[in-house]
Design a protein around this nucleic acid. Sequence first.
DNA 1: TTTAAAATCGAAAACGTTTTCGAAAAGACC
DNA 2: GGTCTTTTCGAAAACGTTTTCGATTTTAAA
Lengths: 341, 341
Amino acid sequence: MNDTKLIDIASALGISVTTVSKALKGYTDISKATRARVIEMAETMNYIPNSVAVNLRTNETKTIGVIIPATVHHFFSSVLNGILEEAEKRGYLVIILQSNEKYELEKKQLALLIQKRVDGVLMSLSNETDDFTHINEAIRKNTPVVLFDKIAKRVDCSKVVINDAKAAYDAVTYLINKGYKKIAHFRGSYVPQNSIDRFLGYKRALEAHGIEYDSKLVYVCDNNTDFEDGYENAQKIMTENPDIDAIFAITDLVAIGIIKYFNEAGIKTPEQVAVFGFSNWFMSTVISPKLTTIDQPGFEMGHQAVSLLIDEIMDIKEHRPVTHQIIELPTRIIERESTVK
Amino acid sequence: MNDTKLIDIASALGISVTTVSKALKGYTDISKATRARVIEMAETMNYIPNSVAVNLRTNETKTIGVIIPATVHHFFSSVLNGILEEAEKRGYLVIILQSNEKYELEKKQLALLIQKRVDGVLMSLSNETDDFTHINEAIRKNTPVVLFDKIAKRVDCSKVVINDAKAAYDAVTYLINKGYKKIAHFRGSYVPQNSIDRFLGYKRALEAHGIEYDSKLVYVCDNNTDFEDGYENAQKIMTENPDIDAIFAITDLVAIGIIKYFNEAGIKTPEQVAVFGFSNWFMSTVISPKLTTIDQPGFEMGHQAVSLLIDEIMDIKEHRPVTHQIIELPTRIIERESTVK
DNA sequence: TTTAAAATCGAAAACGTTTTCGAAAAGACC
DNA sequence: GGTCTTTTCGAAAACGTTTTCGATTTTAAA
């Protein structure tokens, strides 16, 4: 170990630690001559400042925390990528925690991050989360939080999102314009805002185009880790409502499950039933037929979230007033085989 | 902010910070009575210890660093999962860095982690890395390192790996036993140990079964982020060596590229050419035909790596002699459609 | 009651920096 | 040479803990 510290440089040079510290940090009240000597000595002694001591003194850790529901999803992987890249660029390290879609875990992890004195935290809510006091508490304690993707509208903080309702609206409108008439929706569970908004988009698109909304055509897929849900509900809907001609799925994963079932059951996609996904996972180009879907800019989302967070950290540090922003990233339809006859 | 500190509790109770600290940490030289008073006051004042101060004093951060080449790959996502879960269970936080397969970045990031005083680091080498002094340097400075998956044999530290050569040998042997005679190999680039070992396994399996190794049947796929490489080389091999009847691919991603090309070109899999992947990515069950592959236990690998690392951290802390272990995780063949006629 | 042992507490040093403030030295000016 | 300004440096406090060691008080033993 034997790390060299300021005092080692100081005694090697016969000067004080104060002078060494100032020389290294570029203070102007140190002569060019001694500054040069200090820098050289620091170099040869291979000095590396002890970040922990610096953190204690300066009261900042140059570290941000990230809480995401899961990493296995391709979408969150790309968000993570964006986060890591931007954080590194701005000189921050990132601590990652995974809530596994559990509210209790999410709460505990947020407390952990605050205890670790991270300068700010980025989070995407778990599916269970419908109480936001832990987040408000964090903000109240001056740890800035920015929410991304799975957010809560009622929390007053910066956010970066897509317009789920609009994206869903666009998707369903696209299907209607393509001539599909009886469009089902495989939705997510009832708590997450995404799930609600995509459902609303679906419903509004139908109504806006004179198609009556039928709650019997809405199936719930609340398992996020597997495509079984899509598979099973596809099976179910084809016995209960065999005359549908399209399904708008909340997620590519669900859509993949649907297509898998259709392929096995000999149901032609899109000839008999078209399938529309959501997120543009890598997988969606792999399956046959290739999946039409909504592109959700994960990488960009990670970038923006970090940017917003660090800006806010700076504002707090400089005692500037903080203003919360909501960035809405554009989505677009990626048309592939699963919807074009 | 207004965090409550030890001194706040102390002055509220009219006692010293020493006593407060000891009471909270369960020292036996504090009376039951005052301990109770302290604990209660700490509770009501919502005391949270300042980790940075604790870190400085105790000289440990309860944080480990992880450097991986990329997160987008499904395999690394599951390793990450295993890491996060085990680290949380053992009370450690994890800082993640991504080298993007660049040696220089990997080196810089390792230095960063050491400067941040992480208690240890987990890493999987970049494809470019063929100099290991940065790792040896870290170990010399008493920051334990454990390597996983993409390792360097010449570095003296704990490792958790699969036996790439054996897994590849098994895969090719499987193909031979299935009756395939002219088996090509799409290998990775020349530096990474994985790539080398899988190639060696391929070669040895051929030789062990009396099939002459032909270097013309080996194609290099060194792009890890896309399946284009597999796609293009598949196209190439079918003009240069149209009589092959199987391909052993270094990665599921490459295999997917091959199958995509075959599907488009009307080449039947596995009837004309069988395809064998490696890693058992989620994707491999999505493509049609479903891909036969080697299951690589990523989650378990993450678990074990963290376990090894924390054990070593403890050994160093307690001044016990450290012993380096190499854990070899079992792989197995997952037979699916792409190799069974 | 005296003495020894046990129980309970606190002063102070330490971890390695950063930064304020004052002191000393050097230079400028008359 | 004396005064004033500028340059250059260092002592010391501070960040919030942990832990050693000694001091004081209480209890037990005789």
